[in-house]
Amino acid sequence: MEKKGWYSCQILFSFFLILVGLYVIFNSVRYSMPLIKAGDATYVDAPGFSPVVCGGLLIILSLYVAYGSWKRGGTLRYFFSAEMFAALKSKEALTFYKVFTLMFLYGFVLLPSLPYWLSTILFMLAFMITFKYFTWKAVAVSVLTSFTLYYVFGTLFSVALP
């Protein structure tokens, strides 16, 4: 990734972390206050104490990173630029989309609805075809892997496979 883009991504991620920090603080106060009001906890032993401290530190450090990245040329305007759209279509980005789409399909669709051995064969074949590798070896590896794992986890280790 080019320098400006990298620093711009740092800013965006820092903002995301700041939002996480704010959420953590808000949520920690929300579930701590009833206990404190009821006299069941004090401010320092309330369940939200450590998360509030960590959330606060996260916000401060993220602001520091965002400021440093901004000073080095990062900007949120980058995310509306042509470079950004080119980065979203880069070879690595495409690999990312493909891997996560396949993983989502496997974890969220195939596994909950098909027997383990079948979903695994289908996933492995889809994976190798997506990355342009389809030979008899791919089919053999998929079938062999699927049944081996089915036997090892399902039979030997008694895991209740889907």
Partner: peptide, 26 residues
């Protein structure tokens, strides 16, 4: 392609087998 398909399947079954839960896969 073969190796990484294998790793992907292993991380899924590995995380599932912790508590036999699809939630852990997610």
């Amino acid at each position: 392609e073969i190796l990484m398909a294998l790793v992907s399947v292993l991380v899924v079954i590995g995380s599932y087998s912790m508590k036999s839960s699809i939630f852990d896969v997610k």
